[in-house]
């Protein structure tokens, strides 16, 4: 019961974050909203695992937290540098 209430309470927050990602005026607003959305998703996956008694979901939540962080950094790097690679020229 308590997990069900938590999941229901997390939904509006996720909708609002998604709304900011859609409205967003700038790119950085969207990245911020998607990052927040990812954090909420991690929490929701963990709570869902407890709700359905499938505690393997916690591993998925952990992996999602890792991927969320790396994805945010990768998107930012792509839009600032325009490239995922490392350029030796830039250091000199």
């Amino acid at each position: 019961m308590m997990f069900f209430v938590t999941v229901i309470a997390l939904f509006p927050a996720m909708f609002l974050a998604l709304g900011r990602a859609i409205v967003g005026p700038t790119l950085y607003d969207r990245v911020l909203a998607v990052n927040s959305f990812g954090t909420f998703t991690v929490l929701m996956i963990a709570v869902l695992g407890f709700m359905t008694d499938q505690t393997d979901f916690v591993d998925i939540a952990l992996t999602y937290a890792l991927i969320n962080f790396i994805g945010t950094i990768a998107v930012l790097k792509f839009f600032v540098v325009g490239d995922f690679g490392y350029e030796e020229q830039r250091d000199q």
Binding site: A9, L10, A13, L16, A17, R20, A33, S36, F40, L43
Partner: peptide, 13 residues
Amino acid sequence: GCFCVLISAIGLI
């Protein structure tokens, strides 16, 4: 915790 998350999302808007 849900309350904090919800307020954070309201703040985002």
